[in-house]
C-alpha cells in the first residue's frame, strides 16, 4: 500500500506540466483584460459576446472533430472548403422542400464524403493528408466558385428558426460531451493518441491502425457537417467565399488550446474548446481595436507560427514532425 501512496504523492515535480496546462486559460484571461481595457469596454457588451459566441460555435465544433485526426498525427486543411461545400449542398436540399432533418443529414453527408476521401487516400494510398486535404480544399472552392458565380442561393425562411442561441448552445454542448467521451474515455480516442505516439507500438498492442485512422476522419467529417448546418442557418445563403479561411481558424484554435499538432498523448479535447474561444477572441478583439480584417489574417499567421515555434522548443518531440 505504501508504494501506491508514493505514486500518488508526487505533485510538486509536475510544476512544469501544470504550467503547460494552464497557459491556454491564462491566454484567454489576458486577452479579455487587454481587449476590454484597450477597447474601452466594447469587448464585453451583450451584442459582442453574442457575436463571439456565434463565431466560436462552428469553429469549436469542427475543432472537436479535428482533435481525433490531429491526435493520430494526421492533418486536414480542408475545413473551410468542405464546410462551404456542405452549406451549398444543404441549401440546395432545403430548397427542394425536404424536412429539416434531411437537410441536416445532407450537411453531414456532404462533409463526410470529403473527409472519408482524405482518410482513404492517406491511409490506403499513403499520400500525405496535408497534400490530399489541400487538394480537397481547392476542389471544394472550385465547386463553390462554379455553382455560386452566377446565382446566389438562399435558405428557406424557416431555417432561420435554427439560428437561435439556446439551440446552438445545446448542439455545442452535445457535440463536446460526445467528443469528450469518445476521445478521453473510450478506446477510439486512446487508440488515436497511441498511433500519434508510435504507430508500430500501437499496432503491436492490438490497435487496428488503419480502421482507427479512418474512424478519426469520419468523426471529423461528421462534426464539420454539424458545423455546416449551424453556419447555414446563420449565414442564410452560400457564396463563393463561404467558409473561407476557417481551416486557419481551426488549426489556430488547436494550437492556442495547447494541442501539439504532431499528435500523441498530450492531445486533450478541452484544448479544442479553449482554443476556439481564444482564436475568436483574438480576432474579435483586434477588430474592436480597429485593426483591418486583412491585417488580422496576417497577425493570425504570425501568432500561429510563434506558438508553433514556442511549443517546439518546449516539447521534446516538437509540435510538427
Amino acid at each position: 500500500m505504501s508504494s501506491l501512496a508514493k505514486i500518488k504523492n508526487n505533485t510538486f515535480v509536475n510544476a512544469g506540466e501544470w504550467l503547460r496546462k494552464i497557459v491556454p486559460y491564462l491566454g484567454i484571461i489576458l486577452m479579455i483584460v487587454i481587449f476590454q481595457v484597450l477597447g474601452n469596454g466594447k469587448l464585453l457588451t451583450r451584442g459582442n459576446i453574442n457575436s463571439i459566441m456565434n463565431q466560436t460555435i462552428y469553429v469549436a465544433i469542427m475543432a472537436f472533430g479535428a482533435i481525433f485526426v490531429y491526435a493520430h498525427g494526421g492533418m486536414d486543411l480542408s475545413y473551410g472548403g468542405v464546410i462551404g461545400f456542405s452549406v451549398l449542398i444543404s441549401i440546395l436540399a432545403a430548397n427542394t422542400g425536404v424536412p429539416v432533418w434531411v437537410v441536416f443529414l445532407a450537411n453531414i453527408g456532404a462533409a463526410l464524403f470529403w473527409f472519408l476521401l482524405n482518410g482513404m487516400v492517406s491511409v490506403y494510398l499513403k499520400v500525405s493528408p496535408f497534400i490530399t486535404s489541400l487538394c480537397i480544399m481547392y476542389m471544394c472552392r472550385g465547386i463553390l466558385n462554379t455553382v455560386c458565380a452566377a446565382q446566389k442561393y438562399s435558405v428557406p425562411v424557416y431555417i432561420y428558426n435554427y439560428d437561435n442561441q439556446v439551440f446552438k448552445l445545446c448542439i455545442l454542448i452535445g457535440v463536446y460531451v460526445t467528443c469528450y467521451l469518445l476521445f478521453e474515455k473510450s478506446g477510439i480516442g486512446k487508440a488515436n493518441k497511441a498511433i500519434g505516439g508510435n504507430p508500430t507500438a500501437a499496432a503491436q498492442a492490438g490497435v487496428n491502425v488503419r480502421a482507427v485512422r479512418i474512424m478519426a476522419y469520419i468523426i471529423s467529417g461528421i462534426t464539420v457537417g454539424i458545423a455546416g448546418f449551424i453556419l447555414m442557418a446563420r449565414a442564410g445563403s452560400v457564396s463563393t467565399s463561404t467558409g473561407q479561411g476557417l481551416e486557419m481558424n481551426v488549426i489556430t484554435a488547436l494550437v492556442l488550446g495547447g494541442v501539439p499538432l504532431s499528435g500523441g498523448s498530450r492531445v486533450k479535447m478541452v484544448g479544442a474548446l479553449v482554443g476556439s474561444f481564444s482564436v475568436i477572441l483574438l480576432r474579435n478583439g483586434l477588430i474592436i481595436l480597429g485593426v483591418n480584417e486583412r491585417v488580422i489574417e496576417g497577425i493570425q499567421g504570425l501568432v500561429l507560427l510563434l506558438l508553433v515555434y514556442l511549443t517546439y522548443v518546449k516539447n521534446k518531440d516538437g509540435i510538427l514532425k
Binding site: 493518441k193 497511441a194 505516439g197 508510435n198 507500438a201 498523448s265 498530450r266 518531440d317
Partner: peptide, 12 residues
C-alpha cells in the same frame, strides 16, 4: 521503436 510509446505515460 516497437514496444513502447515513449512520449506517452506508463499508464497509457
Amino acid at each position: 521503436q516497437e514496444a513502447l510509446i515513449l512520449s506517452a505515460s506508463i499508464q497509457e
